[in-house]
Every structure is written in structure tokens, then in C-alpha cells.
Design a protein around this nucleic acid. Structure first.
Lengths: 230, 230
DNA sequence: CATTTCCGAAACTGATCAGTACCGCATATA
DNA sequence: TATATGCGGTACTGATCAGTTTCGGAAATG
């Protein structure tokens, strides 16, 4: 990921070799500063200081501030969800809830903070926008759509639910809460999205909710934590 | 709205009076530039040029760039929804759809563009964040919660739907689509949120959708465009 | 019509920051 | 151990921009 915009780097025959361990450290520092101050507030000196590196070292590896940031953002992608280890609990709710881990929440929060610092620039820098979407939006949407499609195949939810749209609901609510409302996205909030929006929108009801006033609540396969409406 | 941060302005006994028509023109120019370039990209010279005013004229009215922007954002609030003329069609879907007017879509799109230019700063400037939320998030959420509560009172939707949460869904999806995906929020998209997320989450189904595979679709008061599940 | 004050324009000041150049030291090769 | 090179640090350059000052002209008052 980093290599793509790295400044040439022809290996010398003699003398000291480029210290490759500096790259990830500088990229991490970039993400930290980005999350704290945003793109415009971030200076190369801040990044260098954070990484305990010299400014020149940064410019020896990346041609410009813009390319450094694009690389750093692209870097976040790999540190994301492992698609080979997705939960498969047998229920949509189970799968969604299984994704709520402290690490995942924390990681998402940091990514959204980075995103906040880039939003303004993204409208004018398609390359950056693509990198940010691929790193932050893409993976989460993909996971949700996998879970939803599974639930359809399983017959748990109707086949006509708008998977594409519903896959975005979680991320949209988290984004909105962080960027617009300035409130934290914690476990409780994610649960409320699952039980208050996504599952109901699929015709299911969340775990700990009272049955609807009039509806005849037909008990379903009775797996832990959901009932089907209709 | 503008007056609160305006620089003193003691009326003289003699000579030319302050041209009050310049204020709204400068504020409008500010919003335009803000939407196009974001807070950091915006310069006072740009605003002055756009308003065909001198830079000094701007500083004669606002003490700093920050205060100008806060005023401009606060200004957007008043140009919003008229709460005395909210639609009341008798159905939740009818009310929600009645809010989709070309002007409303356009207005929302512009506000989101302005918001995009402020997001990064909002995390570090609570005053600005408050102004932005009051102008952009607040009114829309309020409208949705009014519609939802009405629908509950009417018995159209269950009383246990999470009104607070669902009121944010529309705005969250629009924000996400604009800021993160860089796609336009058009009538079709708003309709898909209504029919694909909000109504289903309330146990209703949108107008032009096939009935669910297994559920017994009980026909309800049979107003145009909805059926109740359960 | 004289006076006062605002206007737009443009020049100026000081701070900040991207990007460059250079230094002396550390380190890996031969 | 001699040599070539990357390292962190610092000083520099040039551009940009917030905010100030100044100026000639235009308007409103009396």
C-alpha cells in the first residue's frame, strides 16, 4: 500500500540502507495527527515530531503532503475486518451483534475521526475520496450486505429487502452521530441501530423489546434474540 | 441572527449611514464560498470579491473569519422549514413524501455542502458545531419526529418505535451519501429511504413494493400508499 | 453645498507552513 | 577501517492569507 507513491528509493551498493521500519511509524503518526487536527490543521512538522523523525525523512519518502495522506488513508484499509473470519451465528441479529467488539468500536471511531478531517478535501480530490471510501466505507458495507444476503437465503428475512440501502444504514448512523452530532458511537448506540432500525426494517424485532401493541407476534424458530413480525 | 456578532455599529448623526443591504449579501457570499471550498480553503478576499465588497467592509462588520462563518451558518437556520405549514396528509408516508419538494432537496444539498466544509473544524469549535447543528440537523430531525409521533397517536405505527433514532435516519443517510459517497441526494434516493428503511422499520411497507413472501398482509385503512405488516 | 462618514480598492504586516538545503552523527558495507 | 549513505535536526525560502491601514470617491445629512 505504501509503496505506490513512495519516492523512487534506488537501493545503494554501499553505505547505510533505508530504514524500512520508519514508513509504518510515519504513516501511523500521520493518521493520528489527521484525526486530531484534520488535513488543513496538520503540518509535516507535527507528523515528523510524532514519529520522532526529521521532516526531511518524510520528504525523502513521500513527494508531498497530499501523497503522504493518501498513503496513510489507504493503509487503514488493510488493518480492517478479516473477511475469512466473519461470524456466522445463524441469525441476522447474532451476526450483527457479533461484530460489536471493543476493538471494532474503537477502530471505527478512529477512522471516523480521520474521515472528519478529510471530508472537506474529498469533494475536490477524487483520489483521496476513493482511498477513504475503500478504507472506511467499503469494508463495513460489504460485511453488512453479506449478513443480509445470508439472512435472505436462510429465509429469515423477506427477499425483497433493499440490501444495498440497508447495508449503509449502520455506517450512515455512525457517521452522522460522530460528524454531525459530535457524540460517541458506543456499544449501546450500535445495538440501538440494530434493534431499532435494521432489524425492524427487515421485519424482525430486536431482543429485549416489548411486543407491538396490536400485532400478532408469531414466535419464530425461536433462536436467541429475535422474533418475526407478520 | 447576524446582529449578535456584528462589530459595534454606533449610528452617526451626520454623513453616510451603514449600508445594511451589504450584510445579507456578504453572508450569502460566505455560504457560497464555504460550500465550494470549505472553511480552510475560503479566504476573506474570496468572500469580498463574491459580494463585490471590499475586504475592509467585511472586517468593519465581523471581527474575524470565524465569527463571519458562525453568523453565516446561523443564517441558514431561518431560511428553513416553516413549522406552521407542515403537511398533514393522514399517513406517515404521505407526510414524509410531501416534504420532498425540489426546493427542499436543493436546499438540503447546499446545506450539506456547507456542512462538509465545516465538519473538520466542528470537533474543535463547539460554538460553530452548535450553530451548524441548530441550522442543519435540528429542523429536519424535528419534522421527522413530529410526523412519527403523529403516526403513533393515530395508531398507524406501534407506540414502541424508537422515534428519536428513526428521526435521524433520513438525515444520516443523506449526510452519508453526500459526504462519504459523494453522490447526489435526489428525489429517488429520498423515496428509497422512506420506502426501504423508515416505513419498514415502523412495520409499514412502501407504496410500490411487492408484498412480503410469507406474511399475511392485512389491508389497513387503505389510504394511498401503505400497508401494515402484522 | 459643506460636512461627515461609509464604501471599494489596494498596499502592507506578520505569521504560518510546504518544501528544500545542509549539517554532523550513526551505521552498514567492502 | 575507509567510504558511502540515511538519519534527526535546524535553518532557510517563497507563497499564502488573516487582519490592518490608507486613500479617493460617493452618498446622506443639515
Amino acid at each position: 500500500m505504501a509503496a505506490m507513491t513512495l519516492v523512487d528509493a534506488t537501493t545503494p551498493k554501499l553505505g547505510r540502507k533505508r530504514d524500512l521500519t520508519r514508513d509504518p511509524e510515519i504513516l501511523d503518526a500521520t493518521l493520528e495527527v489527521l484525526a486530531e487536527t484534520g488535513y488543513d490543521g496538520m503540518t509535516i512538522d507535527m507528523v515528523a515530531a510524532r514519529a520522532k523523525a526529521g521532516k526531511a525523512t518524510v520528504y525523502r519518502r513521500w513527494a508531498s503532503k497530499g501523497e503522504l495522506v493518501i498513503d496513510a488513508v489507504a493503509c487503514m484499509k488493510s488493518a480492517d475486518i478479516d473477511f475469512n473470519k466473519l461470524p456466522d451465528t445463524g441469525t441476522l441479529r447474532g451476526d450483527l451483534v457479533a461484530m460489536i467488539k471493543p476493538h471494532s468500536i474503537e477502530d471505527g471511531a478512529k477512522k471516523l475521526k480521520v474521515m472528519a478531517g478529510l471530508v472537506s478535501l474529498m469533494t475536490r480530490q477524487p483520489e483521496l475520496a476513493d482511498a477513504a471510501r475503500a478504507a472506511i466505507v467499503g469494508p463495513r458495507v460489504k460485511v453488512n450486505s453479506i449478513f443480509l444476503r445470508r439472512a435472505i437465503e436462510r429465509g429469515e428475512i423477506p427477499a425483497d429487502v433493499d440490501v444495498e440501502l440497508l447495508s449503509h444504514v449502520g455506517g450512515a448512523m455512525a457517521t452522522h452521530r460522530t460528524l454531525m452530532l459530535g457524540l460517541p458511537v458506543d456499544r449501546e448506540f450500535v445495538l440501538s441501530i440494530i434493534d431499532g432500525v435494521i432489524l425492524p426494517a427487515c421485519g424482525l424485532r430486536g431482543a429485549a423489546t416489548a411486543p407491538p401493541t396490536k400485532a400478532t407476534t408469531t414466535e419464530r424458530p425461536s433462536g436467541p434474540g429475535y422474533t418475526r413480525r407478520g
